[in-house]
Write a protein that binds this DNA or RNA. Structure first.
Lengths: 253, 253
DNA sequence: AATTATTGGTGTAATTGGGACACAATTGTA
DNA sequence: TACAATTGTGTCCCAATTACACCAATAATT
């Protein structure tokens, strides 16, 4: 819990460096070996969980701001990051206004203002991440998708929209470059897809389709050491992968 | 051209009622009988064209703001309107700052601030629209896509992104409800698609695919009066149409 | 060393969807 | 009445998707 003085200092500083009324909320999906989690923070003020977020500096591109915000929360750079929606209801920050109303009059409460929030979703390997709380949270941690706590504000809606968007975009967009090791097996990649979509896919059809995209290199080595038959290793063909990111995977009309 | 006093009044008022740093830019695509145009405004200050846009009032939802802005520019309500991207480069408003620098110091120049702009695209029948200039434009009019003037600011990029997004979304989303008359023929609907995509489609394949979506009712009447064979009339099955808008047209994984 | 359990590699038949294509029907005009 | 233009409709072919089954490799067990 912050003291009144600390809050005042934060707001005074925020007023100087950040754009008013604009915030960024990030839904960080973490993956590792068939698991999928979301990065969440627990308020140090009450029993409420929220998504990582922050503000845009006065002369900072929003893309840069999103990366900066995630850098301090996760410790990693160069995250796969995608803008997916803007959340702009006038009363979405009401709770913040309530929360701090005893400590500062609303006109000084930076948080209590109306914020228009730009939603990003991020995809990371959660083994690479060091979850780091901010000044307003006591906990920053991964949560399983099926064991999510109650969200603060409209963060439940933001999370849901991000997940829907991610699943939709899986149809037109390659995925996995930042989530898989350099070399990986087809079953491992399939597990990533199954985890995101929360459904089983057919091994053979998955492989055929994925190879059809032309974004994978089949290596001659196999993954030794595991139990059972050694699967072949693949790597992403980065050039084709990037092209597919731009052009999309299916043509349509 | 506005006087200095008029500008000052506008800015003073804008400061009172609008959220700082947030703007909305709308790419309004107009369709009618196989033609496709974009709504544009010509600055009364210089030979520069820009997209309809405006600001968000302090307690107004952004969706409402976008509708309000388009209402005054087009005269119509209930426009098909879709948020598609946020443009937030810090220097995207630079030109505005330049433009008015002789009339007001930058700190009073509402326009000269850094704006983060939420991009919407709209689809309308341009026969229903009365293009109406704003205080900063002498002309508000439709322009053909292949005869576009030079754009101000980053509006060329915004326009291009909107068009790309529209064409992409044509693959997963039904279209035409607000753009076609209540009853229309298959060739008329096809012409809409061809116009948007700027390419010819096969009559028979188009019909088969479109009917496959299950969003059309085939009526028993035909369109009499035209030359040549009378085509059947169709109407949208609004229930299935709405469902397809939500669910998407193709499944993917 | 043989057996078993488990997972990975691969092929094939049936179905579906899309693309290319041709001919018959209707209507106004010459 | 012939013609031009346009619409309605069906079929063939290929590509993609689906469902499904058998063989191979490895480790643990016996």
């Amino acid at each position: 819990m912050l003291t009144k003085q600390e809050l005042e200092d934060f707001w005074a500083e925020a007023n100087k460096i950040y754009l008013d009324h604009i915030s960024i909320d990030c839904v960080v999906f973490g993956f590792h070996e068939g698991q999928m989690k979301v990065l969440m923070l627990k308020s140090n003020n009450e029993d409420a969980w929220y998504l990582p977020g922050g503000f845009v500096m006065k002369q900072e591109p929003i893309e840069t701001a999103a990366n900066r915000i995630l850098k301090v929360r996760t410790g990693i750079d160069e995250i796969f990051l995608k803008q997916f929606h803007v959340f702009g209801d006038p009363d979405r920050s009401k709770i913040h206004n309530e929360m701090y109303k005893d400590m500062l009059p609303p006109e000084n409460n930076f948080f209590g203002r109306r914020f228009i929030s730009i939603g990003y979703y991020a995809l990371v390997d959660f083994f690479n991440v060091t979850p780091t709380p901010d000044a307003f949270s006591e906990i920053c941690t991964w949560r399983y998708l099926n064991e999510l706590p109650k969200f603060q504000l409209d963060h439940e809606f933001i999370f849901r929209t991000a997940l829907d968007t991610l699943r939709l975009q899986l149809n037109y967009q390659p995925i996995g470059y930042n989530l898989m090791p350099k070399e990986f097996t087809m079953p491992e990649l399939q597990k990533l897809y199954e985890t995101i979509l929360d459904k089983k896919l057919d091994r053979r059809n998955f492989q055929r389709r994925m190879l059809g995209f032309g974004i994978l290199n089949k290596l001659s080595q196999t993954r030794k050491g595991g139990a059972h038959k050694a699967p072949y290793l693949y790597s992403f063909d980065l050039e084709n992968y990037q092209a597919a990111l731009k052009e999309g995977l299916n043509s349509g009309w």
